[in-house]
Design a protein around this nucleic acid. Sequence first.
DNA 1: TAGTGGTCTAGACCACGGC
DNA 2: CCGTGGTCTAGACCACTAG
Lengths: 213, 213
Amino acid sequence: MQGWQDIQAEALRRIQRREWTPGSLIPGEAELAREFGCARATVNRALRALAEDGWLERRRRAGTRVALSPQRRAQMSVPVLRQEIEAHGYVYTHQLLHAHTMDDTLFLHTLHLSDGVPYALENREINLSEVPAAASEDWTTLSANEWLVQNAPFDHGTMIYEAIAAAPFEAANLLCAEGSPLLVLRRETFSGTGLITCVTLAYAPAHAVRLQI
Amino acid sequence: MQGWQDIQAEALRRIQRREWTPGSLIPGEAELAREFGCARATVNRALRALAEDGWLERRRRAGTRVALSPQRRAQMSVPVLRQEIEAHGYVYTHQLLHAHTMDDTLFLHTLHLSDGVPYALENREINLSEVPAAASEDWTTLSANEWLVQNAPFDHGTMIYEAIAAAPFEAANLLCAEGSPLLVLRRETFSGTGLITCVTLAYAPAHAVRLQI
DNA sequence: TAGTGGTCTAGACCACGGC
DNA sequence: CCGTGGTCTAGACCACTAG
């Protein structure tokens, strides 16, 4: 036993082997520090990491308990289509289908392709009062998907996945039958209080979103 | 300025106000500790938290830089259908449609309902050699979805979302037309090297998965 | 009110990796 | 090499809260 990661690993082992059972109180930091022959701060570091991962629940005075249902969480980033496609070894291209501006909103329709095959259809609105630089951008070389990731950092947002039936416009662009089931991602991102962009991404049929837990 | 959270907040402010620009080197821990009038460990705690959230990239010797594209990540838990449904104020029920055992695998088909309306159709396999207790469980009162969360903690796993067309079996149980687009979640969870369970969850039409970024 | 975790400090040594 | 972040220590005080 040397670093806090070793103590974390040992504690996790005890949880998984049920030496420390769900809901039960585990020894205090001081006692564990004595057992492992280290400072209390080191034990604190290890247990705090386990608590952040959902294995433990810690409360002052009440002590540390093994979580009743250790919920592992999957993490998902905002997808950058070029990276998704190139990670599979394919060539990424995109076509700007349509662009127009109304009031302070820029509307863009983009088709993303993988080795020339339709991959996803993007329908995006950009709030020009939040991102004025977007007004003078040439979307034929760099897609809005990539440009915004680099140029419009956001504080928070929402993502929604759902399944829809392909409408004629989607069917024509994604080269599938009308009514085909499509996975769709809708996303809104905000900076402070202002909406930056709002996008609907319809993936080609059979697309799957994979997450590691 | 008092605790590490204040230092974290101040650093985040400088990033968001572009006083520290993406890609640039920020002052070292020792210098910031001097500026804030605290110990280096306190600065370290604050900057480490920002790095874990993706705002900073830290490397020994190279120093700390503002991330080029501060990628916010969405977090998603393994859904517990009862909680999902009750969180919306509806009554959760479920029906065991089918169960049988072959070799060391238990096969279960379950329909989950929200206020009596079909919500999701679950097709599950449980590895009895990893979870022997599952063999003697009565699935009519507690669904496998809930039971496993409590009784079979896992180390890691994969989740896959995709869109499918409703087959006759799904259409009949989810009360929708054949061919309706359905959002489907496939999940495998493991403990150590062993597969615990593998589940396909077909949600009723128009279901959406919402994530906060 | 007493006991737990949360945090801070000052100092120290180490590991990594640009130079 | 040597400066940077990563970590550990021993001790201290504080915040919260169960009893």
